[in-house]
Design a protein around this nucleic acid. Structure first.
Lengths: 109, 109
DNA sequence: TTGACATGCAACCAAATGGTTGCATATAAG
DNA sequence: CTTATATGCAACCATTTGGTTGCATGTCAA
């Protein structure tokens, strides 16, 4: 995975917005994603290309429609690496542990 | 916290390198951080300003020296928010749980 | 087949970005 | 005091970036 492409892709607010939209509703077409934005279709298309190149969205053609699907893996990989690198890993782990336990064993005692 | 400033600050490889260096050795001066880089001092200074504005590094003057300290909070906040947003929280929690358990109870069985 | 719809491609443009150089200022050291 | 060191400020420059418009291509529907 190319870190730099991911960071650069995430650096733009419009692209983060597109990821947001795909997160809310996956598999949207280019036209779908243009709705309500104050950008031309081509501007959106360019952003989507960058997101694809960063491997943050995957596409699938269906006839004349290009469906866009979010791929959370790169974000997660970066987050994992940067968290363990720059943060108190112990605190995070404990916090996650707490949450995991609460979910794994609901009302046990 | 201004998400956009943080994302934009992280978008540049030179700035991520500076964060790396501060992570390895905190509290370095501008001159320290310039050592071995193929950039002018002013270029480095500019990068550091952006990192400061994103609240990723804090500075403290000591005489004529400006000491730079890394601040991991913004990275962590963004990571937290984007993880829960775009990732399978359960998988992450379980993974963290596993690691936490391994650390918490070393060779128990 | 014809027309509407969905997308791609290319040229172009303004603004932001990352870098440089030159000079100024403040502090430490001899 | 003089000099060297550490940093800041401002102007300038080339490239990248985010956007536009115009036109081409491919697919579905009447």
């Amino acid at each position: 995975m190319d870190d730099d492409l991911v960071f650069k892709a995430l650096a733009d607010g419009s692209r983060r917005l597109l990821l947001d939209r795909l997160h809310r509703k996956n598999g949207q077409t280019l036209s779908d994603l243009c709705q309500g934005l104050e950008m031309s279709r081509q501007a959106v298309a360019k952003h989507l290309v960058l997101l694809e190149e960063a491997n943050l969205v995957a596409v699938q053609w269906s006839g004349r429609e290009k469906l866009h699907f979010i791929n959370p893996v790169p974000i997660n990989e970066i987050a994992e690496r940067w968290i363990v690198k720059f943060e108190q890993p112990r605190l995070r782990a404990l916090s996650a542990l707490k949450g995991a336990l609460e979910k794994a064993k609901p009302p046990k005692n």
